[in-house]
Amino acid sequence: MTNVHATGPESTKPPDEPHDDKEEYGGGAIEGQHGYIPAWLLVVYFVLFVWALYYAFQYWGGLGPGRI
């Protein structure tokens, strides 16, 4: 019996076999997979965003002309 809804090479695997979620690009030179974003990286993103806002207002004149 064949699975009508499945497409691609994953459709030939039995349902109980673990799936390989890696995607290949550039003929296999680059591999990507779905995962999670580590908490420390989210903290780095937040800190950089806050620093960018501070820098924009402090050194680029704030909201417009007329700043003392």
Rank of each mutant, 00 (worst) to 15 (best):
M1C: 06
M1N: 03
T2F: 02
T2R: 04
N3L: 10
V4I: 15
H5E: 14
A6W: 08
T7Y: 04
T7E: 12
T7W: 03
G8K: 01
G8S: 02
P9G: 02
S11V: 15
T12N: 04
T12H: 03
K13I: 03
K13Q: 13
D16E: 09
E17Y: 04
P18Q: 00
P18C: 02
P18G: 01
D20Q: 05
D20E: 09
D21H: 06
D21M: 03
K22W: 04
E23W: 01
Y25D: 07
G27M: 03
G28N: 02
A29V: 02
I30S: 02
Q33K: 05
Q33D: 00
Q33H: 01
H34A: 14
H34E: 12
H34P: 09
G35Q: 01
Y36V: 08
A39F: 05
W40M: 10
W40G: 11
L41M: 10
L41H: 07
L41Y: 10
L42Q: 06
V44K: 13
V44A: 15
V44M: 11
V44P: 07
Y45D: 09
Y45A: 11
Y45M: 14
F46R: 10
F46A: 14
V47L: 15
V47C: 14
L48R: 01
F49T: 14
A52R: 05
L53A: 15
L53K: 04
Y54P: 02
Y54F: 12
Y54H: 06
A56G: 13
Q58P: 01
G62N: 06
L63W: 07
G64T: 08
P65C: 04
P65W: 03
G66T: 12
R67E: 12
